[in-house]
Nucleic acid binder design. Structure first.
Lengths: 174, 174
DNA sequence: ACGCAATACCTCGTAGTCGAGGTATCCTCT
DNA sequence: AGAGGATACCTCGACTACGAGGTATTGCGT
């Protein structure tokens, strides 16, 4: 998820690590903060894998900056990760939002629609958080107000997302 | 999050690992599956920390079961984790839902309301996923349909959750 | 002159997570 | 009789992530 965000932000323009960190913090930081000690090793991983290159620039403000640029492999890798997300990236909302934030970088609208359809299929599966044996429980059947809240919130999200997905898939297809 | 779920399920009744796994899979598995190789070490950690005890029972169906029971420290620890969740548990929806799933185990309704108020405060902060400099962008200002989707969905979730939170806090206070 | 915040990057140890694989029992279907 | 699936638990190596801490520069306020 972090690597996807790095690739996604660099796809638009070269950035140095510190700026990248600010963008990632803005994107997902209020929900899931990213420590510097997670970001810098991730950058090194991607560099080692040949997905990005760094150019040291004398510090415009303070310490020397390492300007990071995606290589052609890096650009391909982003498109590949967007076109074929892991199942995790489809089901986990945090990861899914990261995919959505960069999905415009897929230039093929059929490929974009295919990704949205995977999320649609996931949301259309009958799933609950709470079961009576194998039978999913509805909010109304729960005594616990907090568990009822979970289902109420999840249902509202699901409804909003389903209608957005259907609209967007229709407009990508048409 | 995993440890919280283990403590939460065992708070109600002793279970063996395999059954615990099924319950956790039902609770959060459709979003974020839990591998066995994550669960069993987690059980051992909790056992080593004195939060749970295991009793080997001759296998009723197959291999011998290790029935897991919370110790008094374990029960206290669950209540402590529920009463004072880490900020992560408040902001990350996956973790938050796990807190909610077991919040009924806090016997003090004022303490329950305090936890809900932390979530309320978090949701009431103005935050977006996308910024123009420091200014949070609204869905209408975005050209990108996918990013617009992120904001649309997040806004629907937030609205549903805020109204549920306010209602529930009111009924806990009253 | 001094401290402090912001910029910018880094290392280290620890801990959590995962996939792949292993072991063994019992039951059902063929 | 044998295969396969469910039950039930485990190890191992690799990777990712985190907090704590470190380094160095620039600029602002007092």
């Amino acid at each position: 998820m972090l690597e996807l965000a790095i690739l996604g932000f660099l796809y638009d323009a070269p950035l140095h690590g510190y700026e990248l960190r600010k963008r990632i913090t803005a994107l997902t930081g209020h929900v899931r903060p990213v420590a510097e000690s997670t970001l810098y090793p991730a950058i090194k991983r991607l560099e080692k894998a040949g997905l990005l290159a760094r150019a040291t620039q004398p510090g415009s403000v303070a310490a020397p900056r390492h300007v990071l640029t995606l290589t052609e492999e890096g650009r391909q890798e982003l498109r590949r990760r967007l076109a074929e997300p892991a199942q995790r990236d489809i089901t986990d909302e945090n990861r899914w939002f990261t995919v959505l934030a960069f999905l415009r970088h897929l230039d093929d609208s059929a490929a974009q629609a295919a990704v949205l359809r995977r999320r649609l299929a996931f949301l259309e599966e009958p799933a609950s958080f709470f079961y009576d044996g194998d039978r999913p429980l509805r909010a109304e059947e729960l005594d616990d107000p907090f568990r009822r809240g979970v289902l109420t919130i999840a249902r509202a999200t699901s409804r909003a997302e389903l209608s957005w997905l259907r609209d967007t898939i229709r407009s990508l297809d048409g």
